[in-house]
Design a protein around this nucleic acid. Structure first.
Lengths: 196, 196
DNA sequence: AATTGCCCATACGCTGGCGTATTGATACAT
DNA sequence: ATGTATCAATACGCCAGCGTATGGGCAATT
């Protein structure tokens, strides 16, 4: 969303907002997981001290909550606004896949959050977001003329595949198809996962 | 592997071994991730003090290394020994899928490790294990008569799908197909991912 | 009986992150 | 100019986990 002008150089005498803290929390979460959302390290990264933090938030808990809320809102808005105006259901699924395989950062963030589902609050949010995505996919498949029996299965199948792609791409970047190979791979997935 | 007789009741006056510590480390890792591999909490769980731990290991680092080695060995042995004696390549892939969707614990463990790939040592091991699995899958597809161009793509596709299944199943257990639905889902994946 | 080696308990200091309390600085309003 | 609200710095105590040092129990050996 906001191209973060924080980090090293940061004069940026603009006062920090709570949302800026939440966004920064998501940033580090994408790299270091939930545990990386720590007050003092974050403050250092933002070139302030925790004195600032505890003005905006009562405690670390609140920051995590805010970050999760921000993430959920981003994801939900993304899905609903961007994609739903495409009339063709086939193209809608294609767009979903494109999006999933493009924004690296969002992918890493999802995986980081999904890895922290031992935390109850995280689990709730991840479940909601995943359920929404699944429901959306199912709707697409039904719009393609698929029955109420098959559609959920195909939706789960497709969703699992593109979550798995993010995972595999992150874990073994070397073996993951790249360049022209990727375009082939992409087409293969599409024609396999969208029966018509 | 070993049905852990540790935990609460534990009289078990058998002295602990380094491998027992490593196994316990993997256990907690499957639930709480890499950060959960902490010396003192683990010692409590094993009904000893860290005095024991620091006899077997020089430090936490060594424990993590040992746990990773144990995991890699388990995974590799699993893949090579159990599956490779099946002659039919089709059935081999089926067995792989069955295995992936059966042992919950192993799945959670993989996801936990994959989530900690910011740690260099973890990343190396995960990469090796994933690469081995992918290579194995590719060999299966080639044995099915697939060309050197297509086989890696299908292997990646299949691997991503069953990694994604573990992920989705963990993150949204409610929406994941269960019981008879799952058998349908399973068959759908098989006939889609194994062209013949 | 004494010794040696294996395995673990206890006690200690160190570090990093959490949360609080207090003070400081800048902007804006009056 | 002076006061007030907003945002941040500093200093403090607390806790949990890491690593060390040292000693204790309990075999097996001699």
């Amino acid at each position: 969303m906001s191209p973060n002008d924080l980090n090293e150089p940061g004069p940026s005498k603009q006062s920090l907002t709570a949302e800026a803290w939440a966004a920064a929390a998501l940033d580090v979460m994408a790299v270091g997981g939930l545990e990386a959302v720590a007050v003092e390290p974050l403050a250092r990264k933002l070139n302030v001290t925790k004195g600032s933090f505890y003005w905006h938030f009562p405690n670390r808990e609140a920051l995590v909550k805010a970050a999760l809320a921000l993430w959920e809102q981003r994801e939900t808005v993304d899905v609903v606004s961007g994609l739903d105006q495409e009339p063709d259901p086939y193209q809608r699924i294609v767009n979903l896949f494109k999006r999933a395989n493009s924004s690296h950062k969002a992918g890493r963030l999802y995986l980081a959050l999904a890895a922290a589902t031992d935390d109850v609050r995280v689990n709730e949010v991840v479940q909601r977001v995943s359920a929404r995505r699944l429901a959306y996919l199912e709707k697409c498949y039904r719009a393609l003329g698929m029955g109420a029996e098959e559609a959920p299965l195909w939706a789960t199948f497709a969703y699992a595949t593109f979550i798995g792609n993010q995972q595999v791409h992150r874990d073994t970047p070397h073996t993951f198809p790249a360049g022209p190979k990727f375009r082939e791979y992409f087409k293969l997935m599409l024609r396999t996962l969208i029966p018509q």
